[in-house]
Every structure is written in structure tokens, then in C-alpha cells.
Design a protein around this nucleic acid. Structure first.
Lengths: 219, 219
DNA sequence: CAATTTTGTTAGATAGATCTAACAATGTAG
DNA sequence: CTACATTGTTAGATCTATCTAACAAAATTG
């Protein structure tokens, strides 16, 4: 059984691999907030347990076993977030830190019961897919708002970042999953976008923000 | 902040101190399932952080700070058990192991929300008192069934042991908190007790079992 | 392509939590 | 009160997860 630390490395590896396909030591070190030598020795340990494959100076890749393990931890994280929001009344900006701890609990029945009470959800409160019990993750291909064009109407469907600060930023602008937005204009200089809400109010969103907003295009 | 391991030592110390007032190294070692040298070095560390007072060859005593910390961990444990039983539909025999992990989560809001949803309970599913937010624990003076006499009518109010096996034993005999029992007879030889239920069925309970059953005497 | 920057590795140290072996203090029972 | 048993301590080892310092390989860039 993986230690809590090992579980966190697996999770980071899984997430990084989904963004970049090649994961190197320095990226992992940044993600995990530890030094490169620490990562170096940790990947060697993880390799011994066949969670990943690693050769000197080469990128790190998860084995199928490692991917499944990571996905199951992410499953526990996302089920927990959903439970906290839907069954315990937390705001979507409050749940990440709690789930970060709860995900390491070893008690299958606990998470099965959450799943059941939630009606077997497939996405978490931030729109991320919840891996199934086999660790299979449904790939949803949303578009980033930063890739949309003026005139398009979109629905906010997911986020690529769930930090409290970002979520509070969104709360302050009445942006939540399902919010319909029309792209009024896009500034060529800084890639910022002006969106208008159904109630005709409007907001300017910087490129940095737009990149983190995943949307479904309506027309 | 205490590590998970330290939290477990504090909890064990607190529980042992409630039974015996003097806690020595070997008892703690047995309770924690580690060797005496391990306890020896750990009590030294805990003393540095002022959780307890310790002198060579003397018993260990928690400081007020240590007692409060321990009580607050026990509070999280018992709130969790209550939540698992009352809000998630678990049986009282399933919750100890899960709570043992959840109690180490650092997220005041999480436990406050449980408390609120449960309506600020004062006892857990096994009849043990839940310490308040200040770590104050309400002392309830139940009698052990093994100290009762033939002819008395009692109500099962709490348990001194919450292991799965014991709870399954009780389930098998329809014994739950609130069950009314009349003591039909008490065997002088092995201290076993015959009890009859309201429905006139009856069971023989060994001394070992009776010691773990805390009751309110009705008349 | 040589120089520089970035990335990665090795070696060795530290801190936490544990162990065993050896020994020392305390307690108990004849 | 001595002998034996129990309890406790010290020393030294191990394993995990981390660090820094020093060096080496790979990548980038002029």
C-alpha cells in the first residue's frame, strides 16, 4: 500500500501527465514543492513498487498500475468534494483543502456510501470528471474560454484550477458551472475577453482567467 | 501541531488516565502496540512540546494543554462516528476504524458542520460523551452491568469497548443503547448474568461482557 | 559548436518513529 | 532482605522523507 506521500506523488504525476504527456523530475519537484534530489530518490522507490517507469535522465511515466492507483485517489478526492458541497453545504471554494486530506483515508465503504448518497455522480463541483471504481476516467473535451471567439455563446462547464482564491474570484463575478456567457469582444493585445451574462451585465476576464475556464460552445 | 503519531499517543494517554489515573510506560507501550523504548523516546518528545510531564521511572501525566488536545481529537473521533451512523447509515460496529482515520483531519469547519448537522450531540453511537469545543468532557457515572444485582431493571446506556467484534456480538443478541433489561439471576461462580428483555426472551452474559456494558439502573 | 543554463544525480546529513540488545532501577514474594 | 520478575533506560540500528552541496549530463543559445 502506498504511503500518503507516495499517493501524493502518484496524483501529481497523473495530473502532470494529463497536461504534458512527458513528466520530468524538475516539474514534479515544482508540483510537489520539494527539491529535485527528493524527487529523484522518491521515483526510485516508486519504481521498486512498480507504480512507474524511470531511467536516469529520462522522463517519468506511470505504469497502468500507477495510473489506476492515482485515478482511485483522485476518485476519492472528487467524491469527497461533491459530498462536501452537495451533502454538507460547503461552498465550492472551501472543499479542496479538506478533500486533500480525506482522499488518503483507507475505507472503501466510506467512499462507496458517499457515491451512493450522491447518486453516482460523474463530475465534481468544479466540473472535473470523477474516475469510476476501476480507475477509468472519462475524457471530456471542453474548450478553454481563451480559445473562443467573439460572438460565441458558451456555458461554463469546468475549471482547470480549483484554488480557493480563484474560486472566490469567480464567486465575486457570479461565475458558476452552468453560467451562460456571450463573448462580446476579445482584445487582441492582451487576449482579455469581455463577456455578457444573460441578465445583460458584463465582465472583462483576463487571459490568465480565461485559460482556466472550460466551456461548452452553444452555437 | 501534533503529528498523527503524537495525536495517537495523546489519545491513548487520555483514555488510560481515565481508567487508572497513573499511566506508566509499559501500559502505554501495550496500548500503542509499540516497544517500551519507543514510548520512552516519544514521551520525551511530547514533553518538549509540553503535552505531558515526565520524569525518569515515574508515571506519565498529561498537562492541561495535553488533556485539551487529546479531548479535541476524541471529539473529532466521536462526532465522526455519530455522523457515520446518523447521517450516512453505517452500523455502530463499522464506524470505529473509519473514525480512527478521520479524527486526524485538520479542518475545523468540517467537524463544525458535522456537529451542526447532528444537532450538537453530547454522546456518540456507543454512549461515550463527546467533549465540547473547549475539550471539556462531561463525566457520566453509569454503572457496569457486572456491578448490578439480580432483580434490578436497567437500561443499556454505553459501552467501554467499541471493537467491531464486540459490537457484532451485541447485535447478535439484539443489544443496543436504550435496551431495557431485567437481571433475572447472577451466577456466583463465574459472575455471569442472565437478563430478560421486554419481550421476555433472555440471554446469559459472561462477566467479561457485563464489565463492558454500562447501564442506568431504573428502580 | 562552444559556452551557458537548465536539469538531473550522487553523497552525505537530518528528523521522526520505530526496532533490538544490553543493562539498570524498581517492585514483589518467599 | 535477598532473589527474581517487571519495568524502564540507553545505545545503536533501520527506514522514510526530506534537505544542501557538489558535480555531471542535457538542452539551449549566441
Amino acid at each position: 500500500m502506498a504511503s500518503q506521500t507516495e499517493e501524493n506523488y502518484l496524483k501529481s504525476l497523473f495530473n502532470l501527465a494529463n497536461e504534458k504527456s512527458e513528466v520530468n523530475i524538475s516539474e514534479l519537484a515544482t508540483q510537489m514543492q520539494v527539491s529535485m534530489p527528493t524527487v529523484n530518490s522518491m521515483v526510485k522507490t516508486l519504481q521498486k513498487n512498480e507504480w512507474l517507469i524511470y531511467e536516469k535522465y529520462k522522463p517519468v511515466t506511470l505504469t497502468p498500475k500507477g495510473k489506476k492507483e492515482a485515478a482511485l485517489i483522485i476518485r476519492k478526492h472528487r467524491l469527497t468534494e461533491m459530498f462536501l458541497v452537495n451533502k454538507m453545504g460547503f461552498g465550492w471554494e472551501e472543499v479542496h483543502e479538506i478533500a486533500e486530506q480525506v482522499e488518503h483515508i483507507h475505507a472503501p465503504k466510506f467512499f462507496e456510501r458517499m457515491d451512493e448518497m450522491l447518486g453516482y455522480p460523474t463530475i465534481d463541483p468544479h466540473g472535473s470528471p470523477i474516475p469510476d471504481k476501476q480507475g477509468r476516467i472519462q475524457e471530456i473535451n471542453y474548450l478553454s474560454l481563451s480559445d473562443c471567439k467573439a460572438g460565441q455563446t458558451v456555458i461554463l462547464a469546468a475549471l482547470t484550477n480549483s484554488s480557493t482564491e480563484f474560486l472566490e474570484f469567480l464567486n465575486g463575478r457570479n461565475l458558476s458551472l452552468g453560467t451562460e456567457l456571450k463573448i462580446t469582444s476579445k482584445e487582441g493585445y492582451d487576449q482579455s475577453i469581455v463577456v455578457s451574462y444573460l441578465d445583460h451585465s458584463s465582465e472583462t476576464l483576463s487571459e490568465k482567467v480565461c485559460e482556466k475556464l472550460l466551456v461548452k460552445v452553444l452555437e
